[in-house]
Write a protein that binds this DNA or RNA. Structure first.
Lengths: 234, 234
DNA sequence: TAACTTCTGGATACGTTGTAGCCATGACAG
DNA sequence: CTGTCATGGCTACAACGTATCCAGAAGTTA
């Protein structure tokens, strides 16, 4: 006796509004705008509905809960850019996949954590995955290895963008200006360095050049792609 | 006229309790236990205080806010393991750093997202960073490049562990059992595959071997280290 | 020992959030 | 025109972060 299938946001029919209520796409767009401007925590059901002149109860008629709204947001963000055309060069294609993902993440600073933290099964996400897998299969026809290769690139991109955005996020959370944040942290760092227990960190703070985020990202990606080429390339 | 320095959790004096209240370390340990068992969202100030038989107001006397509590938790988690001894082999050392970080993240499933999302400045974190930088400097004496190399490894580890844990996290959030979660998702995946628009995804689902998380992680790490060796090694 | 000070848990309060349910009104269909 | 239903608005509840207050207990001082 099999139990009934359970529904998910991607399987449930998406009812269209009959009267003046906004459609799901409008709710999602409003939520995206709030998240981009103020962070994901600012996306509350009341806020989203209110910004659209809709009732919260109405929003709940279309979107089951907040978690589902975030799923929809994550997928919508991934549908903003066209899928890049494949070339004959797996490496260029994987790099394009990585850069496209990074561009999306930079546009939506809340997204990296969410993408890293939840399976992504919406239509846009699947479309992107398909394109990315196609590039990886050009590297190696073994689907298992291709998936692993893609996973490694994906992991690097997510981790890299998220950590690059961490300082900005902490500032925001503190409610301080960037200058105030530096002033809350700077003396501590100076103290740590003066204590002499962390000579490598001292060198990094005192000698290392200010990283250009784009170049830093590209460096790590190139290393990863180099490694993939060495291990799987032909 | 310079403005006064602003304090942070790491610069503020840490008062010891005078009577029967728990110390900061006990609050943090209780919060860690809750987060490990139930996820970070279950860590509320009331909950932490209550679990220790303390008043919430008392907790606030020692820890300024919830955000600070999370900072303390993140650092405490990083202090659980001893720092590995350096060898003469930069690659082995960087791999050890990566594996140690992964082990910590696996023990605390909430940690990857937090580490990726916030600067980590506590004493344990700095200690780990120092050790990791020492390994990276053995790869290249250029402190800027060493930092970049370490950043790339770090990004990969965080992203990899977080995405490996994503499915588990989604199950938990749904409130479904693992089997129920599969049943909510399985038919959708079958449908997507049957539609024929995602041939690469279909191959992955139908043909790819179930990944061993440890091997998958090691593969990506090896690729990254290969790439670093090729670009910076001597 | 008594008086004073301070630490603590408990309680209350407020604004906010997710979610649930109800109701009157207006829009639409038959 | 009547009936149905979609909708915004409202109320409610539990929970949360944070702030404040208070009585009692614990410690210190004279």
């Amino acid at each position: 006796m099999t139990e009934p299938a359970l529904s998910s946001v991607w399987t449930r029919p998406r009812p269209e509004p009959r009267r003046r209520a906004p459609g799901v796409d409008q709710y999602v767009a409003a939520a995206l705008a709030i998240a981009d401007a103020e962070g994901l925590a600012a996306v509350s059901m009341r806020r989203v509905a209110g910004d659209l002149g809709s009732g919260t109860a109405t929003l709940y008629r279309y979107i089951t809960n907040r978690d589902e709204l975030v799923d929809l947001m994550v997928d919508a963000a991934q549908g903003e850019d066209p899928i890049p055309e494949p070339t004959q060069d797996w490496r260029a294609d994987l790099a394009a996949v990585a850069h496209a993902l990074r561009a999306t993440l930079l546009r939506h600073p809340w997204l990296a954590g969410e993408l890293a933290g939840r399976p992504s099964l919406g239509p846009n996400s699947l479309r992107r995955s398909e394109s990315a897998l196609r590039a990886a299969v050009a590297l190696t026809p073994d689907i298992t290895l291709a998936s692993q290769a893609l996973g490694a690139v994906h992991a690097y991109v997510l981790g890299s963008v998220a950590t690059q955005q961490a300082a900005r996020r902490a500032e925001r959370r503190s409610g301080l200006t960037e200058e105030q944040w530096q002033r809350s942290v700077g003396p501590y760092i100076s103290e740590v360095i003066a204590a002499g227990k962390h000579p490598m960190l001292a060198r990094r703070v005192l000698e290392a050049e200010e990283p250009d985020p784009n170049a830093e990202f590209a460096f790590g990606l190139d290393c990863m792609l180099d490694g993939l080429a060495a291990r799987l390339g032909r």
